[in-house]
Design a binder for these strands. Structure first.
Length: 400
DNA sequence: AAACCGTACAACCGCCACTAC
DNA sequence: TGTAGTGGCGGTTGTACGGTT
């Protein structure tokens, strides 16, 4: 009889709560691990090896959830976990990879030997994100034309759009799969969430390989939202109101829209994607993926004053500035191409500010359409190590 | 000295992909 | 083929700690 009751309870739990929890949390300890617990876990794994996390706590005599044991082992107890400050080289790699692939911490971590995804994620959230947001805020007299960024409002807008998403795969702000279910135009339709750096890279490559066939892509710095709406949202302070439009080659695309090949699309609210996507676009600026024809490589004024990360020029590539100086090999080793330490552009500390900066007069460029052109420039090729492309430009693999 | 505040980071949570059955 | 178990991932929270008022 009691078994029947237990079964009923278990079944009702499963029905009412979906999946059963990873473990019975009753009586389990939470919070910080003690050194005794660490030793018990380490001793057990050294004896029996990793795996079977569900049964491990019981076998090891730990009052912990299996997940908690796994996390503790992977992030802190393993011998190959590197402790200590993130180096400037590692920081540069994080910035670069994050610009290319976004919050895929585990992928980024694979390129940083000894670093865990959790550590990198924390480092990003506590150090780098702030720095990079700060760089978008005009700090020099040269940037007076640009209003300051209201970071608090940005974050508020971003967080208000996010539920507790979690999960692997695409970190959705918009339920894309649901979106796809509800319409038939999935082949050429892009949502803001889809419109990430990865997609843009692929499309840029397509453009390069088949300029006549591939979709036209334009990235335009623009204040495209209605004045009323912007005022309501108190987002007057946005410094980089870039929006993406993807159309059949003319100006069918609409600001902030998901458009298909016919220029049809559904408007989304402004700023939904700013928090992440603008940053990604910004990284593309930084990495030379977007080339402003009004900014010549030799424009020293632009290169000397700080608004945005400096685009590595072909000259930079030759002289060892930026990424050409630092390579990461397949074997997981850092390789410094620059054998002398005289380069004035090398990072002097753990700050993205150590890179060179340049001025991007986004406000001015926003006044005309299509002023930002995506170009497959020589400089941009430093990012092409990240993907494979077939002859027709189809991206089929990310080297991450 | 105490209260407050911001930061860093360890840990937790929920979800998803994969796999075995 | 469907389902449950498991590992893994990314977002978020909790808290210790140092600095400031």
């Amino acid at each position: 009889m009691s078994t029947l009751v237990e079964d009923t309870i278990l079944r009702s739990k499963k029905i009412s709560k979906g999946r059963a929890p990873c473990c019975d949390k009753v009586g389990l300890k939470k919070g910080r691990w003690t050194s005794e617990e660490d030793k018990m876990l380490t001793d057990y794994i050294q004896l029996h090896g990793e795996g079977s996390w569900r049964s491990l706590p019981k076998n090891a005599g730990l009052l912990r959830c299996g997940k908690s044991c796994r996390l503790r082992w992977i992030n802190y107890l393993r011998e190959d976990v590197k402790r200590g400050n993130i180096t400037s080289q590692e920081e540069a790699m994080i910035v670069k990879l994050h610009g290319a692939i976004g919050n895929r911490w585990s992928v980024i971590a694979r390129h940083l030997p000894g670093r865990t995804d959790n550590e990198i994620k924390n480092y990003w959230n506590s150090h780098l994100r702030r720095k990079i947001y700060c760089f978008m805020k005009p700090s020099t007299s040269n940037c007076d034309t640009l209003p300051p960024i209201d970071i608090a409002a940005l974050n508020a807008a971003a967080s208000s759009k996010r539920g507790r998403s979690g999960g692997r795969g695409r970190p959705t702000q918009v339920p894309i799969q649901e979106e796809d279910k509800n319409n038939n135009n999935t082949s050429n339709q892009y949502s803001h969430s889809d419109m990430n750096a990865h997609d843009l890279f692929g499309k840029m490559h397509q453009r390069k390989e088949n300029p006549d066939e591939a979709e036209a892509i334009s990235i335009t710095g623009s204040r495209s939202w209605s004045q009323n709406h912007r005022q309501e949202e108190t987002f007057d302070g946005i410094g980089l109101d870039a929006y993406c439009e993807m159309s059949s080659g003319d100006t069918n695309g609409k600001a902030g829209f998901c458009t298909n090949m016919d220029g049809e699309g559904e408007a989304s609210g402004p700023f939904e994607w700013l928090d992440d996507e603008v940053m990604k676009l910004n990284y593309m600026f930084e990495n030379g993926m977007l080339v402003n024809p009004t900014c010549s490589e030799n424009n020293s004024m632009e290169r000397e004053h700080g608004y945005g990360m400096n685009l590595p020029t072909s000259e930079d590539s030759k002289s060892g500035v930026w990424s050409s100086e630092l390579n990461y090999t397949e074997s997981g080793e850092w390789h410094n191409n620059n054998n002398n330490n005289n380069s004035s552009s090398t990072s002097s500390g753990n700050s993205v500010y150590d890179y060179q900066w340049t001025v991007w007069d986004i406000s001015a460029s926003a006044q005309s359409h299509n002023q930002w052109n995506l170009q497959y420039s020589e400089e941009s090729q430093m990012m092409t190590c990240l993907w494979d492309a077939t002859a027709n430009g189809e991206v089929n693999n990310f080297h991450l």
